[in-house]
């Protein structure tokens, strides 16, 4: 499979009694921006570290360009890492930090100076070469860390939640910068984050992880629109998840009513999870609604209003640019293709 740059085959990792990763199977293509997305403790950082060589899997193999690199120590792998807390060398200035990898390879100093300058320009830190890294702001340190990694022209760049410590505006700017960099340099990026919006923005492919297992892998739009199970649905974007029963192909029943939907292939009367995105919940006058409910709460979110609607036992979350006042009775309508039916996650 020469199209795959990296393959993780059956990777498991246990620390003492606890299992951190179970049976991870994953591949990364050349020039792909892959994101490992999941909540804290799901094992995404461990997966990244296994690729980097800082952790050794209990089982399984790591294949790079067709060859197993399981036994290779980190300093021999053609990957570089951008660490979460930057891990800059405090006793060196920015330029020396960036030059570190090249000095080890004994690159002639003329060339080092030139390439460091190029890198500083790339990450928008021209003129900052001589500054002590401890005197730089978080964002600047981040960029030094990125430059330090990229200057070695690795095949793969691993990024471990690199933007976590930055403020919102800066984070968003950096997301765009990173994406541009990746596309310009044509390097494979493997990115770890718990921020689903970040993942959706930057990635070519997302692997959603939870409790040491991969829940779903796919393109951002696919994951968002067709979540594979309740966890993914809940984690990516916001969702309303209702317990329902499949009454047959294209027909699902929940909250006492039957709805037309676009899913089929379930066993008759199979219990399922029904997911509806808040922005897909259409609010109509009470008489027109398939379901009805009372508006409990209205929150202005800038981009839209978020309304919590009590429909029977279920509390609906609805997003709309039109406000429905609290206390009023409204109707709810959902288009058939916006109702996502998924199997209950086996416990």
């Amino acid at each position: 499979m020469s199209e795959h740059l990296i393959d993780l085959v059956g990777v498991c990792k246990t620390f003492g009694q606890s299992t951190v990763l179970s049976n991870i199977n994953l591949f990364v293509r050349k020039n792909e921006f892959l994101t490992l997305l999941g909540p804290s403790g799901c094992g995404k950082t461990t997966t990244l570290r296994i690729i980097g060589g800082f952790e050794y899997p209990t089982n399984g193999d790591v294949i790079f360009d067709g060859k197993s690199i399981l036994k290779l120590p980190p300093h021999k792998r053609r990957v570089n890492t951008v660490f979460q807390k930057y891990a800059l060398f405090p006793n060196m200035n920015a330029a020396e930090n960036i030059a570190f990898g090249l000095r080890i390879k004994k690159v002639p100093s003329q060339e080092i100076t030139r390439r460091v300058e190029d890198m500083l320009r790339l990450v928008n830190l021209r003129g900052y070469g001589r500054r002590a890294v401890t005197s730089l702001s978080g964002g600047q340190q981040q960029r030094v860390a990125i430059a330090r990694a990229l200057i070695n022209e690795p095949d793969v760049l691993l990024l471990d939640e690199p933007l976590g410590a930055l403020d919102l505006k800066l984070r968003k700017d950096m997301q765009i910068e990173l994406k541009n960099m990746q596309q310009k340099l044509g390097i494979t990026f493997i990115y770890v984050t718990h921020d689903q919006e970040e993942a959706l923005t930057m990635s070519d492919t997302i692997a959603v992880m939870n409790a040491g297992e991969i829940q779903q892998i796919g393109k951002p739009e696919d994951i968002y629109n067709e979540p594979g199970n309740a966890f993914v649905a809940n984690f990516i974007g916001e969702s309303n998840i209702v317990a329902g029963v499949m009454r047959g192909d294209y027909c699902v029943e929940f909250l006492g009513r039957r709805f037309e939907c676009v899913d089929k292939g379930f066993k008759p009367d199979e219990p399922v999870d029904v997911v509806v995105r808040p922005e897909d919940v259409r609010i109509v006058p009470q008489s027109e609604g398939a379901l009805t409910g009372v508006v409990r709460n209205v929150i202005f979110k800038g981009v839209h209003y978020e309304m919590l609607i009590q429909g029977g036992e279920f509390l609906w979350k609805a997003h709309s640019t039109v406000m429905s006042a609290a206390g009023g009775w409204v109707g709810i309508v959902v288009a058939p293709d916006l109702i996502h039916v998924m199997r209950k996650v086996a416990t």
Binding site: F54, N80, T81, A87, F89, F100, A149
Partner: peptide
């Protein structure tokens, strides 16, 4: 000492001695 600095050095190609 911050372990991640050690890992960063390894990541950048430094063997144990370096």
């Amino acid at each position: 000492m911050d372990q991640s600095v050690i890992e960063a050095a390894q990541d950048l190609g430094a063997d144990s001695r370096t």
